[in-house]
Design a binder for these strands. Structure first.
Lengths: 102, 102
DNA sequence: CTTTCATTTCAATGATTCTTGAAATATATA
DNA sequence: TATATATTTCAAGAATCATTGAAATGAAAG
């Protein structure tokens, strides 16, 4: 993952609504959640939820697929893994002891 | 680490200048860097560097200590470890395979 | 074909963050 | 004490991000 992508991902993670959306999607995984489900879960209006979901998708942290009238979202663990790698390797030069961390 | 602290830390990491400052400090560790050193390393003016260093310090990602005329900064690996733990555990419910990640 | 449901888009506004350069502060040295 | 060095603070403006509600889109059902 390049720096620009990582910065975009960290920006996405720096908002409370988006963080809670992501956590909801992590909890739901491997099941998907509709935009409406997510909006309800985080207490956001439809348009506000759509705005933040678009931001998370732009950052590659979630993916979506339309299924009839609903749009189903799911977390992208691949991108989260890449971001973690960026944090630990690119940013921290491997100096964080993960054993001690988790 | 609570959610609010993590959001503040992710906000700090979401800026290119601050990301590069942090990387410089990681590279330099266990040595410290003065504000001027860091400003030079990332190509920022003194006041811009000071602004971003204050933001990183506010997020707990760096610490500082005045040494005569200079202010010496160093990365806080403890806070970075806590943030990584937040990302992997609180946010991702332990569903990211760190072996596969790094 | 009209209506309903789910979601997104849009424009306006408000809020936050970033940059800039000048001034202020703190410390050391002549 | 005056001067130089290192850093921070401040105010103004620019840029980015977030919220709101209304309108538009897409898809199903009556």
């Amino acid at each position: 993952m390049d720096e620009k992508t990582a910065l975009t991902a960290f920006t996405a993670l720096s908002n409370r609504t988006r963080m809670r959306m992501l956590k909801s999607l992590v909890q739901a995984s491997p099941h998907t959640m509709s935009a409406g489900d997510i909006a309800t879960a985080v207490g956001a209006t439809a348009s506000r939820a759509s705005f933040h979901l678009a931001n998370l998708a732009e950052a590659g942290l979630i993916t979506s697929e339309r299924h009839s009238r609903e749009v189903l979202y799911q977390v992208s663990f691949d991108q989260l893994t890449e971001l973690t790698r960026f944090l630990l390797v690119d940013c921290c030069s491997g100096r964080i002891d993960i054993q001690n961390c988790c």
